[in-house]
Design a protein around this nucleic acid. Structure first.
Length: 462
RNA sequence: GUGGGCGUAGCUCAACUGGCAGAGCACCAGAUUGUGGAUCUGGUCGUUGGGGGUUCAAGUCCCCUCGCUCACCCCA
């Protein structure tokens, strides 16, 4: 067999055990918080019909969808009676694509299974998504997303609850310094209306506004002018966006500064309602900051929008979401309101790694039972299984090998205890236990050793 | 899509103006025949990403190509 140089496709990664323990810790923690709020798990296929995905992510996003070439006879049939290879329509070559995010496939699920779902329906989903992006630091072509969404209610409590989940999940993961930024598309639209901006030009303005942290007030002003807005329009937008202060204070200032349109009034009322729920959900007021320059890239948000930002490593947002009352309607013909958020698992793991937030215990083997020689192998195997039965994570070495090699294995895997059952021990129904960190070694009666490990690893855990 | 950087042992990297492809780690064996980490000794490991060219001689220079990577745009 010819040897192939091992390599990975661009922007993809292998996860080795050490990393997997970390990833699982994050996902397990999130899962437990989600379920404590009544969210239920859902998974969808990796591939979707291209028609389901297209038109949802804007022009830039559309380019980044991983399209799947038609395969098998489909493609052969296409080419059979042709002497040229001219493709007249995309659909002739491609009719499916890899999942680009979790929100759109979930909207499809809601539209397809509405009769089976109990509304309001709250689901969580953790699966990889794919983007044909050019990878760079912290950016991949295959990465996990983790979404929670509530569909079937317009109640602002659903949005408030989403924020509460974000808060409690981040706290449970160990985050201390973070801020949840809150805004509302209706407020933004009100601000744009006030500056005399409407329609698709508004999206361009929002994209610019969103960059405030990055490029500053003057940067936003310049870019707005550059994009074709007048000086006075830019000035009007900036006067609102630079407002600072407490959540309630900002809302009041906006109300006073602009003549309140219907849209603006709704946005303000929604934001106030969300804020009113947060104390009883034990989300501290100082964590939630009304931030009028928050716009969020995706086009489908219709109401409240929010994201969370850690202060220490400047890495951008680690969660982000909002209300998207129109998305399910694209599959159904009638709207079903929905709101939710996405947890940037990859970034969360990066930040937690940087801040050394992972606990030491990692779910690895607790006891290695050595195979002394062929004559005692069955004794070792039997003892290992007894350890497992009592709840200890135990393994025996898979080969009859030199003790040196087996000890070295335990050392490299970080296994804290090694058990030796040689001819001497076997004859007396005893086992020798070695503590790898201290090097101390004690010979116990068989049952006492089992008890020792159960006390050490099982009974003390709760 | 735009602009940089880099491809040499499993990994991290060295090799002067072109002159015998090397080191550390890892792996295997031994020093130590019932015992890991530390030390020492020895050993295994190469299509220098691929193809072409210049040259007595190319890891090194030239051309092509493939791949990786970083930044911008955008995004998680």
């Amino acid at each position: 067999m010819s040897q192939v140089k091992p390599s990975l496709p661009k922007g993809t990664r292998d996860f080795l055990p050490q990393q997997m323990y970390r990833r699982q810790f994050v996902m397990d923690t999130l899962r437990s918080v989600f379920e404590s709020f009544g969210y239920q798990p859902v998974e969808t296929p990796s591939i979707e019909k291209l028609s389901v995905l297209s038109g949802k992510y804007g022009d830039e996003g559309e380019q980044l969808i991983f399209k799947v070439l038609r395969r098998g006879t489909g493609l052969e049939d296409l080419l059979k009676d042709r002497d040229d290879f001219v493709v007249k329509e995309y659909g002739e070559l491609v009719n499916e694509a890899l999942r680009y995010d979790l929100t759109v496939p979930f909207s499809r699920v809601v539209a397809m299974h509405q009769s089976e779902l109990v509304l309001p329906f709250k689901r969580y989903q953790m699966q990889p998504v794919w983007r044909a992006d050019r990878p760079q630091r912290g950016r991949y072509r295959e990465f996990y997303q983790c979404d929670i969404d509530s569909v079937g209610t317009s109640a602002m409590l659903a949005d408030a609850e989403t924020i509460a989940v974000v808060y409690h999940a981040l706290v449970k993961l160990g985050f201390e310094k973070f801020v949840i930024r809150l805004n509302n598309r209706k407020i933004l639209n009100g601000v744009l209306e006030n500056a005399g901006i409407q329609g698709p030009k508004g999206d361009a303005a929002l994209l610019t506004i969103d960059k405030l942290d990055k490029i500053g007030l003057s940067g936003v002003h310049n870019e707005l002018v550059q994009r074709g807005f007048s000086e006075s329009q830019a000035a009007k937008i900036l006067s609102v966006i630079e407002m600072d202060g407490s959540a309630g204070g900002i809302l009041q200032k906006v109300e006073q500064a602009l003549n309140p349109s219907e849209t603006l009034r709704e946005g303000l009322a929604e934001t106030r309602e969300i804020l009113s729920f947060l104390p009883s959900l034990q989300v501290p007021a100082e964590v939630v900051k009304v931030d009028l320059c928050l716009a969020r890239g995706l086009g489908y948000y219709t109401g409240p929008i929010f994201e969370s930002v850690v202060e220490e490593p400047k890495i951008g947002s680690i969660t982000g979401g909002g209300r998207y009352d129109g998305l399910v309607g694209m599959f159904l013909g009638r709207d079903i309101p929905a709101t939710g958020t996405s947890f940037g698992i990859e970034r969360i793991i990066d930040v937690m790694t940087q801040l050394e937030m992972f606990p030491g215990e990692e779910g690895g083997t607790q006891v290695l039972v050595l195979i002394f020689d062929a004559s005692t192998q069955t004794d070792s195997l039997a003892f290992t299984q007894e350890l497992r039965n009592s709840g200890v994570r135990a393994e025996s070495f898979l080969e009859v090998a030199k003790l040196k090699k087996q000890f070295s294995y335990a050392d490299k895997k970080g296994i804290p205890f090694v058990v030796i059952i040689g001819p001497d021990e076997a004859a007396e129904n005893k086992v020798t236990v070695r503590d790898m960190s201290s090097g101390q070694q004690v010979t116990h009666a068989h049952d006492n050793a089992l008890e020792f490990f159960a006390d050490r690893f099982v009974n003390s855990e709760t």
